[in-house]
């Protein structure tokens, strides 16, 4: 091709949509009189439309979950804030109980006190487990934090196990809902610190009888 450089540069400029009106006219004018450049330009445009005809490609199935599975572990506080957003009612309920019990039992500072205090409940230190003994009835809700709970007796309200495990004996009975919560620890911790500088290990709350079992 004779008129290579200048004409080809102009062609690319037109294809890039950066040519001025004058330059476009200039190219058109040249193409009318030069068959070589006409072909050349046509080929470039074909190359373009060839590329543009490439079909969409979609990510394979399961792509997102594969990515998510490889992400580094999420910070507890984040999980926990999201959990609070997703469970506003339970969050409010737990907050309420903590505030209530926080003021009621702020003096529980050790595990010994804890076991003696909860006459109706027993505490197995070795297994770090709070036990509702057989024949005992807890009226209201039972919230246990950082401990496991074993229910041989009866809980008439809900059982909330925060950061612990729950065991149900075959004779055990819970009338309300059972919630096992792992995410809430830090928030609970924060609330506890606000309410009291003491460490509170176990909460058991009963609105009607203040946790006294008949």
């Amino acid at each position: 091709m004779k008129c290579e450089k200048e004409a080809v540069l102009l062609m690319h400029k037109v294809l890039d949509q950066e040519a001025t009106a004058t330059e476009k006219l200039q190219l058109n004018y040249h193409l009318k009189s030069c068959a070589d450049c006409r072909d050349y330009f046509e080929e470039l445009r074909e190359a373009e439309s060839f590329l543009q005809s490439a079909p969409e490609v979609r990510a394979p199935n399961g792509f997102t979950s594969k990515v998510m599975a490889q992400l580094p572990a999420e910070k507890k506080t984040v999980r926990f804030k999201r959990w609070m957003k997703m469970h506003p009612l339970l969050t409010a309920a737990v907050l309420f109980f903590i505030l209530m019990t926080g003021s009621l039992y702020a003096s529980w500072t050790s595990e010994n006190e804890l076991s003696s205090l909860s006459g109706n409940l027993t505490f197995d230190k070795e297994r770090n487990t709070v036990i509702v003994p057989e024949g005992e009835v807890v009226r209201g809700d039972l919230i246990v934090k950082n401990r496991n709970v074993e229910i041989e007796g009866e809980v008439q309200g809900d059982v909330v196990v925060i950061n612990g495990e729950r065991y149900m004996a075959s004779a055990g009975k819970v009338n309300g809902k059972i919630e096992e919560v792992d995410h809430i620890v830090e928030w609970v911790w924060y609330q506890i610190k606000k309410v009291s500088s003491d460490t509170i290990d176990l909460f058991s709350s009963d609105a009607t009888s203040k946790n006294k079992v008949p």
């Binding site: 969409e56 490609v57 979609r58 990510a59 792509f63 997102t64 990515v67 998510m68 999420e74 984040v78």
Partner: peptide, 21 residues
């Protein structure tokens, strides 16, 4: 930026086809 995995899941959903392409 706060470390929320679920939010990042939305980002992956939005851009996965383009990035894969």
């Amino acid at each position: 930026k706060k470390g929320d995995h679920n939010a990042f899941g939305e980002i992956v959903e939005l851009y996965k086809d383009k990035v894969y392409h």
